[in-house]
Design a protein around this nucleic acid. Structure first.
Length: 310
RNA sequence: GCCGAGAUAGCUCAGUUGGUAGAGCGAAGGACUGAAAAUCCUUGCGUCCCCGGUUCGAACCCGGGUCUUGGCA
């Protein structure tokens, strides 16, 4: 049995997942694109050591910030961890807010999409020089993708072309082949939400807390190393770096982190709302993790429906 | 108190030689298949401070008022 607990940042997923794991004899599998990095602890809001010791956690601290890591790497490791938990007769509680990582587990990703650093570097340079020409080439080589991808979306244009250049096959053809755990395993997908203003004030409180816990020191340490592009864009690193480099004040860094996290929360909700397989639970200020966990347990014995925790 | 500047979208402002207005930011919604905490898309009727005047017509011109702001006292 697999239970997914997903939702936007700061909704309260971790506590609820922990509570569930405790009472169901489960193990937690993180579904978070940033908690995989060993050196990013405060900025990624990892569970504390005491929590990590009380219940087995997987997919946390699995790579260094200098190593490339992406959905594909995550998919392999997370699926392995989940199947192993099930094999041992326990329940896997998959918890996190990275929608694309969740999708990779549920629906899989296509095979043969390995990133070729040389090709990518070349395309990145070309994109910087003349994105329109790259897009033009995409329309010739892979019209189906060109129709889906906007002409000013460098990331996707580069991705589509790097696959074509490496394999000679349009990415739109390869993408048709995918298969994940959905339909193969017994699972329930629980999505948590809260009133928007509550979500935002929790985000702000969390970021203030990060600074108190030493976020600046963490970013300083991380800057000593050669981190990947992915890590360099994690919320907190560019903003605090801007402060360290004297581009803005610490207050502005905090403001920007809060702003960027609010935007991120919105994108997370957009992603999850689209997936009709999710069962939503609306939390309010007074909802405790224990109470919500109880409701989820009850839900496991019922048919799908939506619930409100008073 | 005197002289000047300003008052336009939640915020910062632009603008119309008079024909009832538009950018950026924010906000909201959306997309998403190996960077995803990424990358991108969509959405702006708002007493153009108030009252009067001129005019076919004023947010724009004129007069008065209120408030904000700079300088001088």
């Amino acid at each position: 049995m697999i239970i997914f607990i997903v939702g936007p940042t700061a909704v309260g997923k971790s506590h609820i997942a922990l509570e569930l794991a405790h009472c169901l004899q489960g193990e937690i599998v993180s579904c978070d694109a940033m908690q995989v990095y060993r050196q990013i602890t405060i900025a990624s809001d990892k569970p504390d050591n005491k929590t990590l010791q009380s219940i087995p956690h997987h997919l946390i601290d699995v790579v260094s910030i200098e190593e490339e890591f992406n959905v594909a790497s995550y998919r392999v490791l997370a699926e392995r961890a989940i199947l192993d938990i099930i094999r041992r007769g326990k329940i896997a509680v998959v918890c996190g807010g990275s929608g694309m990582y969740m999708a990779a587990l549920l629906d899989g990703i296509f095979e043969g999409g390995t990133v070729d650093p040389v090709i990518r570097q070349r395309l990145e340079a070309e994109a910087k020089d003349d994105l329109r020409r790259l897009y033009q080439r995409l329309t010739e080589v892979d019209p189906a993708s060109a129709q889906k991808i906007k002409s000013n979306d460098p990331q996707r244009i580069i991705r589509a072309l790097e696959i074509f250049d490496a394999t000679g096959v349009p990415i739109s053809i390869l993408q048709q082949q995918r298969s994940g755990l959905w339909g193969k395993q017994d699972m329930r997908l629980i999505a948590l939400n809260r009133p928007r203003h509550e979500l935002y004030s929790r985000v702000e409180a969390r970021i203030d807390e990060m600074f108190k816990r030493g976020l600046i020191e963490e970013v300083k340490a991380v800057r000593q190393k050669k981190m990947t592009t992915t890590v360099s864009k994690l919320i907190g690193i560019p903003e605090v770096s801007g402060f360290l480099d004297g581009q803005h004040t610490i207050e502005q860094a905090q403001y920007l982190m809060k702003l960027h996290t609010r935007h991120y929360v919105k994108r997370q909700l957009t992603w999850f709302r689209r997936d009709t397989r999710l069962e939503w639970i609306d939390l309010v200020q007074t909802s405790t993790a224990q109470h919500t966990a109880t409701i989820i347990k009850d839900l496991l014995h019922e048919r799908k429906s939506s619930h409100c925790v008073g």
